[in-house]
């Protein structure tokens, strides 16, 4: 074990680690155009058009049930498996239509997702992170080790778990599990990270660790985060989009939206005048 650590710290993680999957040249721009979405007869999104620029954090806010998660799931096509769910309009990733021009399973390696409840696989910490690279390529053992270390370091978990890589991921604390899930997603070098209320099940310290991580990840990923926490949106995001009853009401750079909302509905929501 020790020997392995030495090897890892000496060789720069960048070179071999990325060899497993095509290197991502940073984030990709995600653009939604005229998206109408239906669950059976129930329309959940109305004509949503939104630009989510590359290498920025876009926050989606709005009251419960307004369609934030639904919109997020369109981007990695997790809605496909919900019976009766269909949408019109288009969502593109660097100009490629996610529904027609990219394979469903490949799409999900380019667009990673982090959930509200941490959901590590019932595997060891190492295997959790190594899962994606193994599944989507044939990495050498050494490359795999480096990927795992690089991803765990990126999420600030390496020092906490480097001696316990063989232990089950489910034995970690909630906050550690969530960072492990982020590391697992990073291991396949996604361009876009979708996060659906990633901190709402975490304690304040873990929350702030994950928030810092979001800002850091935005340097080479497009981060799209759903949050119910207004402070969090102002702390981490560059752009904010306000949804209400399935419609995109307003979108603007975060500081602008919070200080000078243009729409009355946005202002009411931000000042807590309705919920």
């Amino acid at each position: 074990m020790d020997e392995m650590d030495d090897n890892l710290t000496e060789s720069a993680p960048a070179a071999g680690a990325r060899a497993t999957v095509t290197p991502a040249a940073g984030g990709a721009e995600v653009v939604a155009r005229d998206v109408d979405l239906f669950y059976g007869d129930h329309q959940a999104l109305f004509d949503v058009s939104l630009d989510m620029p590359a290498n920025k954090v876009t926050a989606l806010i709005g009251p419960s049930g307004c369609g934030k998660s639904t919109f997020l799931r369109c981007i990695n096509r997790m809605n496909d498996r919900i019976a009766g769910c269909r949408h019109t309009g288009s969502i593109t990733l660097d100009g490629q239509d996610v529904d027609t021009q990219i394979d469903e399973y490949l799409l999900r390696t380019r667009v990673g997702m982090v959930f509200q409840r941490p959901n590590p696989f019932p595997l060891s910490i190492f295997d959790n992170v190594a899962y994606g690279p193994r599944r989507h390529g044939k990495p050498s053992r050494e490359a795999l080790r480096q990927t795992v270390q690089r991803c765990l370091e990126r999420v600030g978990l390496w020092d906490e778990v480097k001696d316990d890589l063989k232990k089950s991921g489910l034995g970690l604390s909630g906050g550690q599990q969530q960072r492990l899930c982020i590391a697992r997603t990073l291991a396949v070098d996604p361009q876009v990270l979708l996060m659906d209320e990633p901190t709402s099940a975490l304690d304040p310290i873990s929350t702030s660790l994950v928030e810092d991580l979001m800002s850091d990840l935005a340097s080479d990923h497009t981060v799209i985060v759903v949050t119910h926490n207004m402070q969090q949106a102002t702390r981490v995001s560059d752009y904010t989009a306000f949804f209400y009853m399935g419609k995109l009401v307003e979108t603007a750079p975060t500081t602008e939206l919070f200080s000078r909302p243009k729409e009355k509905q946005t202002e009411d929501y931000l000042t807590g005048r309705f919920s």
Partner: peptide, 21 residues
Amino acid sequence: PRGQRDAGLAMGLTRWETTIH
């Protein structure tokens, strides 16, 4: 937990792989 299945799908696994792994 449902989250486990979602995790598998979101990682680009097929339903069969999610079930088995």
